[in-house]
Design a protein around this nucleic acid. Sequence first.
RNA 1: GCCUGGGUGGCGGAAUAGGUAGACGCAAGGGACUUAAAAUCCCUCGGUGCUUGACACCAUGAGAGUUCGAUUCUCUCCCCAGGCACCA
Length: 860
Amino acid sequence: MERKYNPIMIEEKWQKRWEEEKTFHVTEDADKEKYYLLEMFPYPSGKIHMGHVRNYTIGDVVARYKKMRGYNVLHPIGWDSFGMPAENAAIDHGVPPAEWTNENIDAMKKQLKRMGFSYDWDREISTCETDYYKWEQLFFLWMYKKGLAYKKGATVNWCPKCQTVLANEQVEAGLCWRCGAEVEEQYLEQWFLRITDYVEELLDYCDKLPGWPERVLTMQKNWIGKSYGCEIVFPMADSNDVIKVFTTRQDTIFGATFMLIAAEHPLVMELVRGKEREPEVREFVERIKKQDKMMRTADFYEKEGIFLDAYCLNPVTEKKMPIYAANFVLADYGTGCVMAVPTHDQRDFEFAKKYGLELIVVIQNPDNPLDPETMTKAYVDEGILINSGQFNGMENMKALDSIADYLSSIGRGQKTIEYRLRDWGISRQRYWGAPIPIIHCEKCGAVPVPEEDLPVILPGDVELTGEGGSPLVSVKSFVETTCPNCNGPAKRETDTMDTFVESSWYFDRFCSPHFDEKPGLDKKAVNYWMPVDQYIGGIEHAILHLLYSRFYTKVLRDFGVLNFDEPFTNLLTQGMVCKETERCKEHGYLYPEEVKDGKCVHCGLDVKIGKTEKMSKSLKNVVDPDYIIREYGSDTARIFCLFAAPPEKDLEWSDQGVEGAFRFLNRVWRIVMDYLDDIRDIEIFDGKADLDREMKNLRKKIHQTIKKVTIDIDERFHFNTAISAVMELVNTLYQVKHPDKRDAKGLAVVREAIENIIILLNPIIPHMTEELWEMIGEKRKLSGISWPSYDESVAAEEEITIAIQVNGKLRGRIQVSADESGENIKKLALNNERIQRFTGDKKVIKEIYVPGKLVNIVVK
RNA sequence: GCCUGGGUGGCGGAAUAGGUAGACGCAAGGGACUUAAAAUCCCUCGGUGCUUGACACCAUGAGAGUUCGAUUCUCUCCCCAGGCACCA
């Protein structure tokens, strides 16, 4: 009997069958418990990479497993299809973005299908289609009416050569990524979403998401950056005006000796207007404004400032404080003004030293008293307040509240809270995105497009050159329109939305992907499926995508569309796929196929193996999933990705590891082939008759394996240990002597082993297991089979090994029956000949018995 | 600088309500089969020492502590990865 494992044939056969039979199509079913499993949907770049393979394989195992556990599983896929690369392809090669995008989708869809993922393809969505983004435009209108979407001036990265706005990621070391021109700051009118309205709830729920990795929540908390402090009012020395500052260190207020204002703050020029210093200050401000971006990316930059020939008063000491404009103060955090306490803030200290400003110590170091004359750096630790009037002698941290209360009692301050999080700027001066549904009318101003006029369709016939700002500006048929208010001539908004907007609600759309009524989400379906039970994706989206999605969920909830607070109950952030880099002196980095026997195929020079890094085209350390599928099949690709590392860790690619995975699949295949004829007509062992020792052990192993695999997948997503457990069972089966054809009992146990191996591996290698299932003569469909349960009494060991320690050191082992009493085991341990060599004539102080594990004898 | 993770054989990784460290796989070595090779199947495989044993000692980044017992808990330090970074 020789039937070779032919993965390609088998895989294509079953993929076709699943597609024809719509095996993974689901609908809402009130009788079944739902399970919504989602992987982050891909950008259609043209080809899937190993990161996708890993991400989607992990998800697929869970989806298939949950289905076998009886859940009604929603497992959809779609395309995050707006974005820059499509536009760049158009600029570089003249292909229309829609065409480029759809071709890529077709190609990647084929690849995903070839991997055998259990998607409900009837729910496929593509965010660049009008039937998707028209709802997004509707939500925008609702947000606009509620004041959650607004327009304001803001500085952006501007490439003067390309005449366009660049996203932060498109600025490389201060230069435009495409043309290399120096990026400038420009002040532009931009659309924003008021995420800060939800900042407290977003922060609060960080402590109510137990299914999220701690580090993601920490990153989000840091990003939100809540700080408790005080707004303090500083009166001007010679007018009735005031300067307000935000500080978290009101305990140091008595040490504030000068005032700093962000260079670009309008107050700077106001203060020097008409003064002798005005031209000098203007020059300084202009210089700083230009340098700003460069300096912010530099590791270190010199503190610089300029005196504004103005003074304010310290609100508690009434001392005169000179006012400076400074480069290191941020204009858009707090009030843009900072009280400087040079003795207890390092930046202020450096500034004071440079410009010869006064130092007053207000927190005394208890171990080593400070002297302003000799200090070489600011003292930032805790201590006792001095030079602080009625607060002298208090611990500085404890004085925070009292000083805030005092400031408020004299009308010069109050407790406040500041956040690092800013409103979300969604304007892009780009073509390939969802148009913002606003019309600008000279008479009426910004007017929202009436809901019944949606969608505002992105025009198709646009020439993309990459120059001259937003491409939509020059499309007359798009821009020129009439005002919905006054019917006069008006112009459409030409900004499109950030692509993060699409991905902020796509998971809702998957629940009713073809729903054509307002608001594009069928409440019944969405509230049945949502929230997502398990979300899986890369750690690189830990902040932006996940925070925006949480924000959108709360906004849509407040519009009455959704009835839950958070979109993702459990989150798994899988690690990256890495591979060692290879380079040759002549030809630089090499693709794996450019290396043969350690030599470069171009020049024959020795290839140097470099660091293991995330697979990337620039380092050429990539493996093409198509190649792996062609050589080994997708089942091998799947099991390798799962076996090499637990999902949250980085996975190191290993060609030999892939070989090993393939070898294991062959091993499974062969053992089933070996038994095929003998077990085809056998029923699985019913547990009624007595078995010989070998078969009893095999059965024990079967049930132990079911138990371990169930726990590993269900509780921990540790597929690597689940697979190794099945490997052990397969190894055990290989060790068993092949029962005689007439030994029905023995063969029944073997059949039990084989059936369970197939079922346990099904979520991991679905194609091969379907094929084997059919071959062993099963009539039931494997895709409809339930997950096996195990019999605890069969899995139990009859004899257990007890380790014996003397003073905590392992000195021997004894075999006892599993129900042996603790007293007897202790006795056996003490009387053990080997053990007596170590206890000898010493006195036994105590014996510790850990049930089923060990005995520790303590002697002296 | 701050905040998260994480350091275990030649390698990927197992084992944590404290209880036999190294499961499983890769690589390596040996054996069987073969005219031969590949494939396959079986065995060995952390280090050191000798008295080759059911041996002893050393081993989970380093050092201390708690404990009968620590990869697991506590403290100090070192290294690596990721995030934030003049946020007042």
